[in-house]
Write a protein that binds this DNA or RNA. Structure first.
Lengths: 334, 334
DNA sequence: TTGTAGGCGTTATCAT
DNA sequence: ATGATAACGCCTACAA
């Protein structure tokens, strides 16, 4: 079987000490080229595979990245996770993924589980309920670096990789303005998320640029659940002068809102939607949102993994930015 | 930090030998109840966490299940993977997931990667290109059990957990027949998949029951890609007497087919579709398929994980069935 | 009922 | 340039 040959077996077959063989396989410069070649040749021939459990044990490293996300059903995260896994794999790491389903309690449990499993680091998208990140700070204190992605906590001393949703939202406003919309509503996400605050700022700044006064009546929140979104959009639609267009925190939210309007407000004047994410399913819709802000999910994932692996290799990393963001691109769907 | 206390530390604090502490923590019956309690109490107090890398090393077990699937973008697999992870976690296992993207080459590489990583077992959905499973047989020969799920190879000596698509397809035919359809087309998946053959059999048997002769002209294959599906549905739609309803290998395929017809054959007589999977996105469609066969993805995943863990614990398991299937349920969407 | 001792496969330090 | 040796943390015969 694959893993049957041990370092000791190779050393016996080559009349060398195990330590020499080990060093040869790991390209220690103190080992002569000839010895290295002989060792590697034999290793290849007998298909030697080092035992990763022994290496993890000895080196005190699991070569595992923990990934914590809201929900794999969200294609955004699915794609990001694929990006993470690819980067991880390319660097000899594996990933174990866990979903908190927007429940802080689960998030805390997952953090503990990851620590018990001795992951070398963590990539996290916090839940909508998360208000403090003590459970992750705790891991950092134990030497397990944490990189936040997509959804980061408000604290500004954390490492994170996100979409530039500030600019994305501003672009959405510009786009809608150019299409003639002057009354642009906004369904934000949970107030606890920095991504919500960023969108709000981009929205406010862009409106100001166009000389449109802010109107709090058309700025509402959803906690991302369908029910919450329905309440939010209903609040907008039932105004005396409802918005003619709505920017939604993400595509899924736009779809839930549009579905509600279609079912319950057939006669109303139409409202255009702009979401975030460019979900793959959009192409199958007869009536998609007007536009969506395509995000670079895979790049965000792989960049987060790279940032994390860099921190693992160099725990007191001072080089490189703690904060990376990827631009969104507006995509007109109809 | 969490993992700082070692067995030896506990033993020193308790004036016992490390082996006694180890046995106490693992509930060896030869250790007195009092000792066990004292040990566990201290362990709890100082938050002792055994080092899993040491345990894996010593016990020659990684407590890791490898999961190999086509693509996480398919909600079917996403949900199944969630089921796997839940079962695994509940039993002290973790899961590492890898996608082959329908590429046998990648599938073979993944198999090797999993073996190198010393997973304790594998849960696999083979690619559409996979014609032999030597690479997985090889792992079995090395003592790594494999359980196939959803898509299993044709060989009948393998462990597997699937949907009962034979019955599901027959139900679809019955349903369409009851709705008055007499010319029912079928877009199958790749011929290499057992799931394709099962559907074909269910289709044939049900048609016979209703006294409808088989017509090879309305029985076509898709390799699951959009292009292939377009060719398949075009073949059906361009017949002199096209089918009035089509059973599709899965929802995604039905959607691709419907999209093609909508775009390129607006004037044609309508064709109803029945797919498999009950994708969550279906609710957002203005024109969904007529019906879908809901599958028990999560149960399939967790059952596969349980079957695998049972095999890991008892390598020459003779009890229990090698083959489990879960019924589909037909769901009318409009 | 508890303790002693050896070993899992690899790496790393120190000696040769 | 290579080798001997100890050590990582835990488990488990075997001895006491």
């Amino acid at each position: 079987m694959a893993g049957s040959y041990k370092l000791k077996d190779l050393s016996r077959m080559l009349n060398m000490s195990p330590s020499t063989v080990s060093k040869a396989l790991n390209d220690y410069p103190t080992i002569s080229q000839m010895t290295r070649d002989r060792v590697k040749e034999l290793a290849r021939r007998v298909n030697y595979t080092p035992d990763p459990t022994a290496i993890s044990f000895k080196r005190k490293k699991s070569f595992t990245l923990g990934v914590v996300i809201p929900n794999l059903l969200d294609h955004f995260y699915t794609i990001a996770v694929s990006g993470i896994e690819e980067s991880a794999m390319a660097n000899g790491y594996k990933a174990i993924v866990s979903q908190h389903y927007e429940d802080v309690g689960r998030e805390v449990e997952i953090a503990e589980m990851m620590a018990r499993n001795r992951v070398d680091g963590l990539i996290v998208s916090i839940s909508r309920e998360t208000t403090d990140i003590l459970h992750f700070r705790q891991l950092e204190a134990e030497g397990i670096p944490v990189v936040y992605f997509v959804r980061r906590p408000g604290e500004d001393d954390v490492f994170h990789v996100t979409s530039n949703v500030y600019k994305g939202t501003a672009d959405a406003v510009d786009f809608l303005h150019a299409r003639g919309h002057r009354r642009i509503g906004h369904i934000l996400g949970p107030a606890s998320l920095q991504a919500t605050r960023d969108r709000q700022q981009g929205y406010a700044d862009a409106l100001r640029t166009h000389g449109i006064p802010l109107d709090d009546n058309i700025l509402v929140h959803s906690n991302l659940s369908e029910e919450s979104t329905v309440i939010a959009v209903e609040q907008l639609a039932s105004l005396d002068t409802p918005p003619t267009a709505i920017i939604a925190f993400k595509d899924q939210l736009a779809l839930d809102a549009m579905l509600h309007l279609k079912r319950n407000r057939r006669g109303d004047p139409p409202i255009e939607f702009v979401g975030f994410g460019n979900l793959p399913l959009l192409k199958y819709l007869d009536n998609p949102p007007l536009a969506t802000l395509e995000e670079q999910c895979a790049s965000i994932g792989s960049r987060a993994a790279e940032m994390l692996m860099a921190r693992i290799s160099d725990p007191d990393m001072r080089t490189g930015n703690r904060s990376v963001s990827f631009d969104c691109r507006i995509l007109v769907l109809k």
